[in-house]
Design a binder for these strands. Structure first.
Lengths: 256, 256
DNA sequence: CGTCACCTTGAGTATTGTCAACTCGGGTGG
DNA sequence: CCACCCGAGTTGACAATACTCAAGGTGACG
């Protein structure tokens, strides 16, 4: 059989082993050993990259796998009873998409995942992952941690959307993104937004015009430098203050 | 030693075995067998009931266990960077509190759980639960499902708080509560709210005055009968329409 | 060079929050 | 037993934040 070897060749060309992967520390359990990585590696499917706008999975389709983002970015949406779409989350490299669908009573995906740009993912078939987790306590624990983090992230958004002003929402959103960039050892002050203003607005419960206006205003305040989807945080301290609702008119650093 | 037997007596008086528990189908994995229930039962601690206002766990305390609500009701809050409290969830009998704290990087609880009325809980020490889950695939799967449900619930609240009007939020909130009552085989149309208007408001991202006004208005519209914390759903169909944003002026059932 | 997203900016509006006064009911203490 | 107090809830008046509608502007791509 030549096909397997060809398959392996392609795999290696794409540098697609967990042990080689630069995202390894973000995505995998911390205390996992070589043999365990191999076992995990064996259940992973690495499909071809999705083009921008491509659908990774669709609400209502049979749930089979969760996905680790390798490169690019994903948004997840779910449709409200009244038919509109709600952007429930953004997923960057090293993050896991689809955890919300695991226990969906219908057995289907509960949301739709769409690529915001060219995006590569690792598919983790959930049945196999579960079996493996029963054997590898580290992996089981890691999965619990991941899901728990997702819960905390969602609760933070709840908080954001429920009780904070538009300024605070945007500031917090940018700081959160920045922290996620930093975790991947990228610049924490120079962010390229993979999503549109409209996606941001939808996710934060704002009108897209409001998002646009606030970006402009933050730029006038010299907190950000905005150029389309490139955002530079020029005054991180001030951005943090805004995020925390410190709306004092002037900077009074001596007054603390 | 007499203490253990006394302890057992108390246990049996309180009818505190999973196998006897009426909430069994809500709380436990569906396909679990007798022996497995026993194992689970053995790791559970049943503390004395909490009085109203009692703290089950506090943000920042070392995370040790998650809790199944046996009777009463719990709210969870987390404090925002700016110091205010946000009510992140309400937990009724059969539901599990504390899942958001499992993977908290600090190893502490990430929120505070407070009893809304006299409340009894079963403590599930998480280390033991995890070990057991590795042996019982049903239990492991059930835990994944529970956490996943929590994610979906939070996303629903996100949606609610982000994109829906105050009327829609209240209507949806009541319908969700109603469904949770029904699951416990209680009346789905007669709800006793364990939480204050202020808690509801906080959870839904509204001012408490707004909640109060909407309750009054829904009563005038003959959708609800409200008497303090007792709420009767008198026109469920209409309530659903409101929840879905169907704000047509009059009822026109023939026009469908 | 035109088209099509995506984004920005402006004007007017309205839903909801804030401040404030008042009611109701339960529990406590005189 | 009654008066009082306190927390919870209700209601009203007013203000403001953010939405809607509308009209351009900009950049990418054919």
């Amino acid at each position: 059989m030549e096909i397997p070897s060809r398959h392996n060749l392609i795999k290696s060309l794409r540098q697609t082993h967990c042990s080689d992967c630069a995202l390894n520390p973000v995505c995998l359990p911390p205390a996992i050993d070589e043999g365990e990585i191999q076992q995990l590696d064996d259940i992973i499917n690495r499909n071809r990259p999705l083009a921008r706008g491509g659908v990774l999975f669709h609400e209502g389709l049979a749930f089979e796998a969760v996905f680790a983002v390798r490169s690019g970015a994903i948004k997840t949406c779910s449709s409200t009873p009244s038919g509109e779409e709600q952007v429930t989350g953004f997923y960057l490299p090293g993050e896991i998409v689809g955890l919300d669908s695991i226990g969906n009573p219908s057995g289907n995906y509960g949301s739709t995942a769409i690529a915001l740009e060219t995006t590569a993912v690792c598919a983790l078939p959930f049945d196999a992952l579960q079996e493996l987790a029963a054997q590898l306590p580290n992996l089981q624990h890691h999965l619990f941690r991941l899901m728990s983090s997702e819960i905390r992230a969602d609760q933070q958004v709840m908080q954001l959307v429920g009780r904070r002003t538009a300024d605070e929402r945007i500031a917090t959103f940018l700081l959160t993104l920045s922290a996620r960039y930093k975790r991947r050892h990228l610049s924490e002050n120079h962010i390229h937004l993979p999503m549109s203003r409209s996606d941001i607005a939808n996710h934060l419960g704002l009108a897209l015009e409001t998002v646009s206006r606030i970006f402009t205003r933050f730029q006038q305040m010299e907190v950000l430098k905005v150029n389309g989807r490139d955002v530079e945080i020029s005054n991180r301290q001030r951005l943090k203050e805004i995020a925390n609702g410190d709306n004092e008119v002037a900077s009074c650093p001596t007054h603390v």
